[in-house]
Design a protein around this nucleic acid. Structure first.
Lengths: 347, 347
DNA sequence: CATACATTTGGGAGCGCTCCCAGAAAACTA
DNA sequence: TAGTTTTCTGGGAGCGCTCCCAAATGTATG
């Protein structure tokens, strides 16, 4: 069986390679009748252009690379990333792009993968998660003019990103706890080089300041987004008698919950607890966690859309998309008891 | 700045295109001195072959496609898939392959993605999850001679797969519950068109038969791997007084646990519970779930290795890899109370 | 009806690589 | 040292596509 090429299709439809190419690429200047005939042949034969040839000849690859440079274990234990991947994949399906997934799982992967990313013309652009500051790839990609969009905030001026409003999310969580009556609110923060964590911490502090509440550093513990770190953190925080704990991820909230339950405290009667993410863990506990919902799926999709926009229209002005969060009231913060609500409530 | 091509590198090193190609591809018949010189130039210039050109000229793409044809929501809420993706990605990193991720999330995606998979010469082979019977892609890929490895068992004779021993896992779980003293063991199974679920169900029945225990269909409920389905299932099962419930996924075990706790039953004192998967949910509950560990990460990696083996050595004989499971004893089955064990125990 | 102009079509060149064959260089042999 | 074999190297052809220019066809105008 003969290989299907533009030339072949052209032969069958009685036109040239070039005309078929025009039809395939939806270009102008093909007589409607001819276009229809060629389209029919393409359909019938099930022709599909050869991507390699297309890319080689200077066309776009229709592939975006999704880079998750997470050396830590947390990549796929934290349910955030799967969700994000799903959002990216869905958007790519929608726009007829493919996703090339690059997970850096060990240090040595970086050395291997960097050149591939930087020189391999195999994809049109990059979506990368930016959890940490100073990712060397950012600079390198900028240098090489590789179009990219970060998921997570960037501080630098000229960088395109899509982010969730971490500051606002934390602020709102604090506000919620405050409205329920809590004043001595402890924080289980994330690592202090993690961008999302930093912003959430800022939201926490700003709220305290706005309400004239004292900032007490002994009420702040820095975890690493893992359950165990929060477990230990909660133990430490308990020594300073908080009446509420705000953990900046659901997974850490679960760790804290365990910790509280271990010493016989009841949530929310004895102490309130709020998480952050609104992902699976927040629903698996007893009581279910009040938390901050962030639109992770939408973030992934938006990152793709932003990248495609850049690919199409050039990279200026710099795109900066910040998606909103909302509070999900469940059973761990005491609001329901206070206001007699059943089921999830959203703010 | 001039584009880096084989020709360019050759010019700098004072040899021809062909010789550079030989060096890049580690082929025979290049004088050691020349090889060293060329290598140095490649290194210095940071040359990276153009994949598109390479593929077009008949070389392998060094890309494998990972297809997850899960129309349901469960793709990324079930922690199984993220883990698998991670395993595949890690193995690909290791062998210098890239992963192209194809998630079918809606029906219409299939129509779009099928032609891409079947005709696009963009990857060398496919790793696909086979959760359901009769996936039409299997037949089509076979027809088109696209090398592929299934993750999950296949019934057909000639199909390559990597699977976990679901039968054995379920059998062992039953055995464990039996050894702890339970006799009236209920099952929360998965959908009856799900391959893993079917095998686990068979393990359940076989064990009953081997021990001469009666099979009682009112002690079996078919869920859909979701927490809520198991929640309802447990309610129904409770009407028939089981002394243990075996749920064939951790997520479903969590649903069952909620159900039991709702009616005031204590686990494991009043009723024992076992899950299946040994993924995050089993650790987030109180009590933590005894469960069946399956090597998901290894499964993904093994699928890649099997595929690469096929790519290299041809697809016969048919590869059939079945990985073992093991029992993880935690706090939901009563074994620790009985035997005074602390921490996780493995069988 | 001839001329000017716009629209449509065909084919050459080239993207960067691999494959293959022929020629050059080196290593043996008699 | 000449002749033979082996090892090494260079360059043509071609993968299937896009880009671009030139040729062919069609339409409007005087």
């Amino acid at each position: 069986m003969k290989r299907l090429t533009l030339e072949e299709i052209g032969k069958i439809a009685g036109v040239s390679r070039s005309t078929v190419s025009r039809v395939v690429n939806e270009q102008e200047n093909v007589k409607p009748a001819v276009r229809a005939r060629v389209k029919a042949v393409i359909e019938e034969m099930g022709y599909q252009p050869n991507s390699a040839a297309r890319i080689l000849a200077g066309h776009a690859a229709q592939i975006i690379a999704l880079i998750i440079p997470q050396t830590a274990q947390s990549v796929f234990t934290d349910p955030y990333f799967p969700r994000l991947v799903q959002g990216v994949a869905q958007a790519c399906n929608q726009y007829d792009y493919s996703v090339s997934l690059l997970l850096f799982h060990a240090r040595e992967d970086e050395a291997k993968l960097y050149p591939r990313i930087l020189r391999n013309q195999m994809f049109d652009g990059v979506v990368m998660t930016a959890t940490h500051l100073n990712n060397p790839l950012i600079e390198k990609m900028t240098e090489r003019n590789i179009p990219f969009v970060l998921v997570g905030g960037a501080e630098e001026e000229h960088i395109n990103y899509v982010d969730v409003n971490n500051f606002e999310g934390a602020y709102m969580a604090m506000e919620h706890l405050y409205n329920v009556g809590h004043r001595r609110i402890a924080l289980i923060a994330g690592p202090d080089d993690n961008l999302a964590s930093i912003k959430r911490y800022e939201g926490y502090r700003q709220f305290l300041q706005d309400k004239g509440l004292p900032f007490d550093s002994s009420l702040v513990f820095h975890g690493d987004f893992s359950e165990t770190s929060a477990f230990e953190g909660a133990q430490k925080l308990l020594m300073h008698n908080p009446d509420a704990i705000f953990a900046v991820s659901d997974t850490m909230a679960v760790g804290a919950l365990r910790s509280l339950q271990l010493v016989g405290l009841h949530v929310p009667q004895d102490i309130a607890l709020m998480g952050y993410d609104d992902l699976a863990p927040s629903l698996l506990t007893e009581p279910q966690l009040s938390t901050v919902h962030q639109p992770v799926l939408e973030t992934g999709a938006m990152a793709v859309e932003t990248l495609l926009d850049i690919l199409k229209n050039g990279d200026k002005p710099t795109r900066r998309v910040v998606l909103p969060t909302k509070i999900v009231v469940r059973d761990s913060c005491g609001a329901k008891q206070r206001y007699h609500i059943e089921g999830d409530a959203y703010l």
